[in-house]
C-alpha cells in the first residue's frame, strides 16, 4: 500500500505548480487551468487523508463529501470563468492579462 506521504507530496507538487502558474503565466486561460489544478491538488489531499483517518479499511467519508463539493464548485467556477473570458475577449480582443489595464493606480 502506498504510504500517505506519497499522496501528500504529489498533492503539494500539484498545488505548487498551480500556484506558480497563476503567478507567472500571462494567458488568462492558462491561469484559469492552473487555478483548477490547485483545487484538484486539494482533492487529492482530501481523499488521501480520508483513507488515512479511516479504520479497518473504511475511510472517513466526510472528506470525500467535501471533495465532491469542490468538484461541483469548480465546475460552476469554470462556467462563470469561461463566460467572463469570452466577454473579455469581445471587449479587449485578447485573453492576455497585459490587456487588463483600464483599472490601475
Amino acid at each position: 500500500m502506498t504510504p500517505l506521504a506519497h499522496y501528500l507530496i504529489l498533492s503539494g507538487l500539484l498545488f505548487s505548480i498551480g500556484l506558480a502558474g497563476v503567478l507567472v503565466r500571462r494567458n488568462i486561460l492558462v491561469v484559469f487551468m492552473c487555478l483548477e489544478m490547485m483545487l484538484s491538488a486539494a482533492n487529492i489531499s482530501l481523499v488521501a487523508f480520508s483513507r488515512a483517518q479511516g479504520t479497518e479499511g473504511v475511510p472517513v467519508y466526510d472528506a470525500q463529501v467535501l471533495a465532491l463539493f469542490i468538484v461541483a464548485v469548480a465546475a460552476a467556477e469554470v462556467a462563470i470563468g469561461l463566460a467572463l473570458i469570452v466577454a473579455m475577449f469581445r471587449s479587449c480582443r485578447s485573453v492576455d492579462s497585459a490587456s487588463l489595464n483600464t483599472l490601475k493606480d
Binding site: 488568462i28 487555478l35 490547485m38 491538488a41 486539494a42 467535501l66 469542490i70 467556477e77 473570458i85 483599472l103
Partner: peptide, 26 residues
C-alpha cells in the same frame, strides 16, 4: 476587467482555502 480580476484572485483564495481545509481534516 473587474470581473476577470475578481475571478482569478477569488479562485486563488478558494484554492488556498480548500487546501487548508484538507490539512485541517488531515
Amino acid at each position: 476587467e473587474a470581473g476577470v480580476k475578481y475571478l482569478v484572485l477569488g479562485a486563488l483564495s478558494t484554492g488556498l482555502l480548500v487546501f487548508g481545509a484538507a490539512w485541517y481534516f488531515g
